[in-house]
Design a protein around this nucleic acid. Sequence first.
DNA 1: GGTATATTGGAATTTTTATTCCATTTTTGT
DNA 2: ACAAAAATGGAATAAAAATTCCAATATACC
Lengths: 281, 281
Amino acid sequence: MSSAGTVVTEAPEDYEGLRALLLIRHDGMPKRLKQLAAFALEHPEDMAFGTVAGIAEHAGVQPSTLVRFAKSLGYDGFSHLQQIFRDRLRERFPDYRERLKGLRDAEGHHVHAASLLEGFINAAAVSLERMRASVRPEELSRAIETLAKADTIYLLGARRVFPVIAYCAYAFGKLGVRAILIDHVGQLSPEQLATATGRDAVLAISFTPYAPVTADLAAAAAQRNVPVVAITDSAFSPLVTSADVWLEVAEADFGAFRSLSASFALAMALAVGTAEKRAEG
Amino acid sequence: MSSAGTVVTEAPEDYEGLRALLLIRHDGMPKRLKQLAAFALEHPEDMAFGTVAGIAEHAGVQPSTLVRFAKSLGYDGFSHLQQIFRDRLRERFPDYRERLKGLRDAEGHHVHAASLLEGFINAAAVSLERMRASVRPEELSRAIETLAKADTIYLLGARRVFPVIAYCAYAFGKLGVRAILIDHVGQLSPEQLATATGRDAVLAISFTPYAPVTADLAAAAAQRNVPVVAITDSAFSPLVTSADVWLEVAEADFGAFRSLSASFALAMALAVGTAEKRAEG
DNA sequence: GGTATATTGGAATTTTTATTCCATTTTTGT
DNA sequence: ACAAAAATGGAATAAAAATTCCAATATACC
């Protein structure tokens, strides 16, 4: 390790750190490595997607030089360096599985617990960022209008998303909007929904793997001309066919568990938006 | 070429075209390919960066199925299909300016709805960032240890935080950890908790204004020497006196509503941490 | 100007990754 | 209920890519 290149004390794990390192070290670098440093900052996408051979040709160096370049910065090899560029494009969602594995071997449980938390925080943050870009204001507006027109709002969701719908019940209640939580107690959900008419509305949430109850009940409601507003995670969701308006939320996951943060934020916006719309007229 | 799969007249060269094609073909696809179609649209980043083996595992199919999937869409193989996903990421940069402009042009209500959503997204993001700094790894570790030692975990939370605790019930169940959700149905919560002993544990959550039930039940449990792990928002919380370990979470609010994102992330970390600790021994 | 040291180029090797093939299972049509 | 066709899983194979190694060249130092 301490043999070949220059200093070995670094190796930033994020793009900004790498950028800073390259700017500092650039002046003292030998010709070809300097060339690569400049190329990397000018063509970060190439660095993220390219192969050693391809990038080397583009940058006018030999493949081996690229590997040497990565090692001189403290990385294991080119692949490790490339990961930094990929993470950047991935909306800053580094490969935590890898990191977790490393931490587990290396240090104690404290670190492990903390990195677990980091992972979930990151999944939540990514979900929120994604939603910023993906939800269309017009759709959101239409959803709010539909709910605002309703006499009573029936809240439908099971299993993983039940917490979201339960929160809606709390929020609508606090806002003075009449809403009924379909809680499935005693498997009475069909009866709980039976009183819904065309003048009411259903707010249904379901993500993969779609709980059959939710899809079934939403479909039954739609059949009876009850307007359905849906929050779901893909155009393939069984909710889409029943819905008058549907909003897409793609939550990020960490390990086997998916975030709910974006769904919560969206649900809250729907609830407050509905209450405000009603107050207007 | 005209041999194996389905139709071969297509093979869109851009992401939108691919998306459209998947939506159209989805219904007529066999099980595994349908699965992949959904996965691809839900995890486009994975498709862009992953390897055949990695993506296949994530999506729950065989590597060969991925190749077959690509070919059935008219591509040469997986690599060709992957290119579409990579191209999409390269171009998706001048995004925010467009978005802002779009918001400005749209009508009054749309903007309002969108900014409502922005507000809740920001509150959630702020909460997450705060927690990054505030939760101490040692405390988190102690909390996990306490829960891991327990025979059965009793989940306690009401009103605003009920969704968090309800999610814990889901997560623990999925992880194979015995946990009981105190759901307050029929006001039977004291009875639901009555069977807890010193070999079990209580996970309690409460934020201002502290719901009296939660504090009372936690205190009663502590009295009977049941270990209590608490998540709360200040050192003055009534939960603190009953708790063996407590974790502080300060959620940000927008309007009258407070985020729950940080609490969720923390709860998930606790759940997974507990399950892993148990698996270790 | 000569020698030691660092850098570079390029081929050889190893590792990783995509693809193909075929036996087994599932679905479809009669 | 049966046969034919389609779909699937998994191991075997082929292709591609990263990494290493060493000889050749350039640079720095005395």
